[in-house]
Design a protein around this nucleic acid. Structure first.
Lengths: 349, 349
DNA sequence: CTGAAAGCGCTTACAG
DNA sequence: CTGAAAGCGCTTACAG
């Protein structure tokens, strides 16, 4: 049916061994032979069969990518960046969304194992599951975003640095009482962002009251629930910081429901940037992650692991993108005297 | 290194042929043998090698998915739905984002061909490119969203119906002058949405002036440019309809820049829903596509094609989601007498 | 029900 | 530089 290497060889009048070499730029073949084989291949429209080659070489030129939920814009951007970076080095990616569900993750991992991917890029969910633990030992693996103590290299943003910059900014605007919709504390990013917030507030002589922290799961629904809890307090917090964009979206939604003005009645900031944040009537201040760089670095690290080299990726810097959702100067000219900041000072200062 | 079927067979004291059958639920084997083989497999942690199996059976249990840009929320949702549906029937998907770039699409298609995917799900870009034409003849293929005259089944939404419902709604609100940020006219969806708008306006005795249509490319930048052109007209149109969410986001951004009030100064509506549309100060009315159903239907159709069966997918219905960006009743109680509608009537009526 | 054998399409030491 | 041969790990007629 499909044209095979033997067909090409026959047409070129050589053995398939020679045809194989002629088609491999890094193998040696007489120029004249190479030309004849190339011509034959072109004439027949030969497309090498990776599965046969893989069986022989035990490389599939395929990597697996496992993310908790592609629909989370951060993971979408990450998947995009990884696809780009992988394609550039001739790797095809098998993508799967585990749906923040451990069993789905396990099923997907087995599929990748059956397919004998060359390596695995994984954003681990929850604790270190046995299946993941096992597969990590069998395949070159690089964790992205979250460190789940798998003993593999981790490519991730400098969450702590991002959060500290954000807290400094929040405080410089005159806000005092900060609440946090934290990520799941079973994830390193969830923990790191929360503890950085706590510590940096302490630097400013402030503290994060127990009632001002609600743990979410990085999904929209938990942002909704967290915001309802947080806004039930009297007085409400000056500022709510969400550990990702989806939970921030939940917070924004609740603000709308309650008729609360963003940046005036309560400030909101989030981790992860997103074009939509910029287009809101009150654009949202965020800590942006450099997904392109994360993707590139992840693929590079995986390539190194596949080659058997050790790697120790360094944290990727984040960027504080100041917009108006904290009631700041971007709009009014004075970072220390904006409507939102003033309101808060009236209450607490 | 990895444990193979032979290892399992040896441990169970049978031939690999028998081991293979014992592990295949649809093959016959003595219960006692089957148990022994299963036990051996479990003991050794045997995971079948798909690449060997594929070479033998010429099925890879893998399908390729090619979308123009995963970061477009519509395609993100679609990819998610397809991944779900595929996983359910034991297929793994190789995903690629062609970046609305024909050459990238071609490179990716060749990679899928080398990997001998069982079938292809593709959202075709631009005209019928030779590479795509060729591959479509070689692999079972189903087109999604767009019909590019490839002679393959097309799974897509009822764009015409959605647009007609939207136009009726716009008109019922008292708007008269409608402008459109159209999708690329090289895509069937781009054409279908524009012509449906034109025809339905005609039904109402209105027409779409040449200056009130700008062709975009479904990406953010073109929405920005289109909105600038459209809003340069005096008076500006009553309503701007964007053919997808990304271009709508561009329109919204320009409105903000100009200090124009959404739903009051000018109405906006879009194709494709998105959680962010709901959280804007003025939530955006949209024609929502049922991505879950599109994904399921695409996988089903592809399975049918792989099995050699003919299929003729029927268009998937869309839903008009009425919010406030056209200045409508949802907010004010009377669909025919809202601020926006009134303003427009003052001008044109 | 089970085993021996062939073969899927490649690549790669091994000779020459 | 080139060819003959083996083999990657499975599955599946073909006998028995």
């Amino acid at each position: 049916m499909a044209v095979t290497l033997r067909d090409v060889a026959r047409l070129a009048g050589v053995s398939s061994a020679t045809a194989s070499r002629a088609l491999d730029p890094s193998a040696s073949a007489a120029t004249e032979t190479r030309d004849r084989v190339m011509a034959a291949a072109a004439e027949l429209g030969y497309i090498g069969n990776t599965v046969a080659r893989s069986l022989r070489t035990s490389r599939t030129d395929t990597i697996g990518l496992l993310v908790p939920d592609v629909r989370n814009p951060f993971f979408t951007d990450l998947a995009y960046a990884i696809d780009k970076a992988a394609t550039e080095v001739g790797l095809t990616v098998m993508m799967g969304s585990a749906d923040e569900d451990g069993d789905a993750q396990d099923r997907y991992l087995v599929a990748l194992e059956r397919h004998r991917v060359d390596g695995l890029l994984v954003v681990p969910q929850g604790g270190p599951r046995p299946m993941l633990q096992r597969i990590v030992r069998a395949f070159p693996t690089v964790a992205i975003d979250r460190d789940a103590d798998l003993g593999v290299p981790v490519v991730s943003s400098d969450s702590g640095g991002g959060m500290r910059a954000l807290i400094d900014h929040v405080i410089s605007l005159g806000h005092r009482r900060v609440a946090v919709v934290a990520g799941p504390q079973s994830t390193s990013t969830g923990r790191e962002r929360l503890s950085a917030a706590r510590e940096q507030l302490r630097e400013h002589g402030l503290c994060l009251a127990p009632g001002d922290v609600v743990e979410g799961d990085f999904q929209l629904g938990s942002g909704l629930r967290a915001a309802r809890t947080l806004l039930a307090a009297t007085p409400p917090p000056d500022v709510i910081i969400a550990a990702d964009a989806l939970m921030a979206l939940g917070v924004l939604t609740v603000l709308r429901e309650r008729g609360l003005r963003l940046g005036t009645d309560v400030g909101v900031a989030a981790f992860d940037d997103n074009p939509w944040f910029a287009v809101l009537d009150t654009p949202v201040t965020v800590v942006a992650q450099d997904t392109a760089r994360l993707g590139r670095q992840a693929v590079e690290a995986l390539l190194a692991r596949i080659a058997g080299r050790e790697v120790e990726p360094s944290p990727v810097p984040t960027t504080l993108v100041v917009r108006s959702s904290l009631g700041e100067a971007a709009r009014h000219g004075d970072p220390h005297f904006t409507p939102a900041a003033r309101t808060k000072e009236d209450i607490h200062g």
